[in-house]
């Protein structure tokens, strides 16, 4: 686009900003007529006005194509905020992008009026404007997508926290039933909640039960050993229980060293050891035998 430099769009935006804003907001409200209450008129007007003034600043340089450049940082910021906000409020990507695309109608109408005498110029400017607004519209979709991913990430984090309970099995004995796989993010959470509970309860033994862990590879084993080491630094010993036969086999095949950790086949075995270590004994009462 050689016409970028002498484009009249910057001038038109500058001169007619109030009219463009009014026209655009009205069109958006009319389009959203079927779904009232989603966004108040005042909020919409505010967003539209922020976008327009940022756009007016950005086009001054005549750089229409490089929306990733420094001249467009203001526009990107405004659109980023709007997209994130809409993503969080459950708007679809289409609805989010329509914010930018809907500006075409208002802008083209204005271009037609201003450039009525010059058909060539009108065609060129329309093309320049449509390319630009397409790019900006796609940018909002990208941001929308990213914020959705952030929301999902946060939910995953919350689920992780929910899925790693640390329970007190007996006074001084904690139980940590692990279900699912153990990656580094989850290990971090497991460690934090285990150590926190050690502080709260004063427990000296924790039983980590891995019955619900589908596979134990070198990495998972390392994470387990880290957890055991961290608990030990706080003065608590760990017993790993729920080691199924095939897991025992893989551990040996992989050459994972569990020499310094107490391991038991079942949670019951581990619990018995834990009781013994804390000085308790379980006895069957004679008259109930």
């Amino acid at each position: 686009m050689t016409r970028d430099e002498k484009s009249r769009i910057p001038e038109i935006l500058r001169k007619h900003e109030p009219e463009l804003l009014k026209d655009w907001v009205q069109r958006q409200l009319a389009a959203a007529g079927g779904r009232p209450g989603q966004l108040s008129e005042a909020a919409l007007r505010e967003e539209a006005s922020r976008f327009l003034s940022a756009l007016r600043e950005a086009v001054v340089g005549g750089q229409f194509r490089d929306i990733a450049g420094p001249a467009w940082s203001g526009v990107r910021e405004v659109l980023g905020e709007i997209s994130r906000d809409r993503a969080q409020h459950g708007f679809s990507p289409t609805e989010t992008a329509m914010f930018v695309f809907s500006f075409k109608e208002a802008l083209f109408a204005r271009l037609r009026r201003e450039l009525a005498a010059d058909a060539d110029a009108l065609a060129d400017e329309t093309w320049a404007a449509t390319t630009l607004l397409d790019r900006l519209g796609l940018y909002t979709i990208e941001i929308h997508q990213k914020s959705r991913e952030e929301v999902i990430g946060r939910q995953q984090q919350e689920m992780l926290e929910l899925s790693t309970p640390v329970v007190e099995l007996w006074q001084g004995v904690l139980g940590l039933p692990l279900i699912g796989t153990l990656d580094s993010a989850r290990t971090q959470i497991v460690m934090e909640s285990l150590l926190q509970r050690i502080v709260e309860t004063g427990a000296t033994i924790a039983v980590i039960d891995i019955t619900g862990v589908p596979t134990v590879d070198t990495l998972v084993a390392q994470h387990l050993l880290k957890t055991v080491a961290a608990a030990r630094l706080m003065g608590a010993d760990c017993i790993i229980s729920g080691i199924r036969p095939q897991i025992a086999q893989t551990i040996v095949h992989l050459g994972v060293d569990l020499q310094n950790v107490i391991t038991k086949a079942t949670l019951a075995d581990a619990f018995a050891i834990a009781l013994q270590r804390t000085g308790f004994a379980v006895q069957r009462l004679p008259h109930r035998a």
Partner: peptide, 15 residues
Amino acid sequence: MRPAVAITLVELGMA
């Protein structure tokens, strides 16, 4: 030893 310190030490490779 504080929990955050214990976690960091283990990550550092110092058990």
